[in-house]
């Protein structure tokens, strides 16, 4: 446990199930994330790890079980969904920046439209965030005019601008050229040290070992194993985990 982790639970999942038509993607996930906790979620593709974090801000609807985020239950109540989305920031594999807006406007869109912040205040906050991401000089360019690593940092700034309590990362470095991965991981590392609650789906095992409080291994819609990184990497219990670790660490 890191120095920021508390004992207050912020996300509570109880027996979460999800089907895509006949395909049973999530087969009863029960877990709790504490305030300030950094969890890394890994597993082979198709294991349901991305789907799982996407249920937490209702980009995917779960069909059975309960998810409670910061005391609000994710139900079909539109107001709850909107409230939770304001509390939960998300970073996507494909960045998903809005191409018709400059980088700074990508960041200020949420604060101005949802938080009803003034344009001036939102822009000042956005510039401060870009400064923190070390890309203040890219503020007035369009996303297509900056590199992949810079785009992903703009996307992180966009999520942070809503001042979320939780950040979800869905394979944030998978679409990046190798030389750009570290600049994004640096930013995420800094964010982790600031005490943000983070759920990170990633294949970056070095990052997991260094930053995570807990590593969760998903396979075929269930959590096969979860442990602190040291235990997880050095002393895996299950055969599937052992196989996965040996395959990922080979390169």
């Amino acid at each position: 446990m890191n120095e920021n982790t508390t004992n207050d639970p912020i996300i509570i999942c109880e027996d979460v199930h999800k089907w895509f038509d006949d395909f049973h993607v999530l087969k009863g996930i029960t877990t709790t994330f504490k305030k300030g906790e950094r969890a890394v979620i890994c597993g082979p593709s198709g294991s349901g790890k991305s789907t799982f974090i996407r249920t937490i801000n209702r980009l995917e609807e779960h069909q059975r079980g309960t998810i409670i985020v910061d005391g609000i239950e994710l139900s079909n109540d539109l107001r709850n969904i909107n409230l939770i989305r304001q509390e939960v920031g998300m970073v996507f594999q494909q960045f998903n920046l809005f191409p018709h807006l400059t980088n700074i406007k990508n960041i200020t869109l949420g604060p101005i439209q949802v938080r009803k912040m003034s344009k001036k205040a939102a822009e000042e906050a956005a510039l401060a965030l870009l400064e923190r991401m070390d890309i203040a000089d890219q503020a007035y360019k369009y996303p297509s005019e900056v590199s992949g690593g810079q785009q992903q940092r703009v996307a992180i700034a966009r999520a942070l601008a809503m001042e979320p309590k939780i950040m979800l990362f869905d394979e944030p470095t998978s679409a990046l050229d190798p030389e750009m991965i570290s600049e994004v991981l640096d930013v995420m590392r800094e964010l982790a040290h600031s005490g943000m609650t983070m759920l990170v789906v990633t294949h970056e095992m070095g990052f997991a070992r260094e930053v995570a409080d807990r590593v969760m291994f998903f396979d075929e819609g269930v959590v096969v194993e979860e442990a602190a990184p040291a235990d997880f990497f050095d002393n895996p219990q299950h055969d599937r985990t052992k196989l996965f670790i040996s395959q990922t660490l080979q390169h």
Binding site: N57, L59, N82, R85, Q86, V88, G89, M90, F92, Q94, N96, L97, F98, L109, G110, Q113, V114, A155, R158, A159, A161, M162
Partner: peptide, 22 residues
């Protein structure tokens, strides 16, 4: 692309705002 709507929703925009602004 679908990701645009998802990104817009994930910053908390309402459906009408997603359509109009993104």
């Amino acid at each position: 692309v679908k990701g645009q709507r998802e990104a817009a929703r994930s910053v908390g925009l309402k459906e009408s705002q997603v359509l109009r602004l993104v």
